[in-house]
């Protein structure tokens, strides 16, 4: 693992998690959650867990973001909090 890359990724991870929970537009929240999944995928590639990294890239950043966007499309886009 590369320490400076590790620290930068972990700080961005916390920022992305807080933004995806704070933003009131649910489509934006889904997109920021996709960014969060991609950041954690980079983190795992950096920590030596390449199998976990490409599973996360396919399943976490791909399929969950699509599920969330499909649900937002079928329901409402506004959130109260």
């Amino acid at each position: 693992m590369i320490p400076i890359f590790d620290y930068i990724l972990l700080i961005f991870l916390i920022v992305a998690a807080v933004i995806s929970l704070k933003v009131k537009d649910l489509l934006s929240a889904s997109m920021v959650f996709g960014i969060y999944s991609f950041l954690i995928c980079l983190l795992w590639a950096e920590m030596g867990a390449v199998d976990v990294a490409f599973t996360e890239a396919a399943v976490g950043a791909g399929v969950s973001a699509v599920f969330l966007i499909a649900t937002v499309y079928n329901t409402k886009r506004r959130s109260s909090d």
Binding site: L21, L26, A29, S30, F33, L68, V72, S79, D81
Partner: peptide, 19 residues
């Protein structure tokens, strides 16, 4: 959180934290 989709995003963040 009050919104159900926000709750689910929180649940996913919890799972990735454990991983």
């Amino acid at each position: 959180k009050n919104n159900l989709i926000k709750k689910l995003i929180g649940m996913s963040i919890f799972q990735t934290a454990i991983i």
